[in-house]
């Protein structure tokens, strides 16, 4: 049987494109924003530090410090915009036989991992995530590091439930 033959079947096969993916928790945007803010503060702080150091030496500035500052602020705004839009692309779904996770704005990836190939599942919660009641679900396969999934920003309860479901299925197989 060739691929052509089976393609007739493929129309009846469960379709990944028909699965309605669930967006991750809105609260996770706050964590992203906080992390980004920290980075931006450091960046802008560096500009001022540079200004301070150069002025102390009384050297002549080739360009005004304000241009640099505007460039940095522009970069920060753009960066935040991109990560905000990318946030909306983070979606996941759990099917009977596999886990689907999609993310990425500039390069959009949609990974599907069959549950029968999962080696173990891990739930990790950072300090911030605990505060917002979120969790990160890490799914490990035997494959290259590229085929491991790490789904951030799940509501804690849901992460635990998914973990239980997957664990039960893996153990049921053995």
């Amino acid at each position: 049987m060739t691929f052509i033959n089976s393609q007739i079947q493929t129309e009846d096969l469960p379709r990944v494109e028909d699965v309605i993916l669930k967006p991750i928790s809105k609260a996770y945007l706050k964590i992203i924003a906080l992390n980004k803010l920290l980075i931006y503060t450091v960046l802008i702080g560096l500009v001022f530090l540079g200004k301070y150091l150069i002025e102390n030496k009384e050297a002549h500035l080739p360009i005004s410090i304000w241009y640099v500052l505007v460039a940095v602020v522009l970069f920060c705004v753009l960066n935040f915009l991109v990560s905000f839009l990318a946030f909306q692309k983070r979606k996941y779904a759990l099917r009977t036989h596999d886990v689907i996770y999609a993310k990425g704005l500039l390069v959009h990836n949609k990974v599907t991992v069959p549950i029968s190939r999962i080696q173990h599942v891990e739930e990790s919660r950072s300090w911030l995530a605990r505060y917002f009641g979120l969790a990160t679900l890490k799914i490990y396969t035997a494959g290259e590091s590229g085929s491991d999934l790490s789904i951030s920003g799940l509501p804690h309860l849901e992460a635990t439930q998914i973990k239980e479901v997957i664990s039960a299925k893996i153990n049921g197989d053995n």
């Binding site: 959009h108 990836n109 949609k110 990974v111 069959p114 190939r117 396969t141 035997a142 290259e144 590229g146």
Partner: peptide, 23 residues
């Protein structure tokens, strides 16, 4: 196969072109 990934950059979207990564 351990996992299957559909990969599409923002420029490929209007052209409906996708790469498939099989691990």
């Amino acid at each position: 196969i351990q996992s299957v990934k559909l990969k599409q950059s923002i420029f490929q979207r209007p052209r409906k072109v996708v790469s498939l990564v099989i691990s």
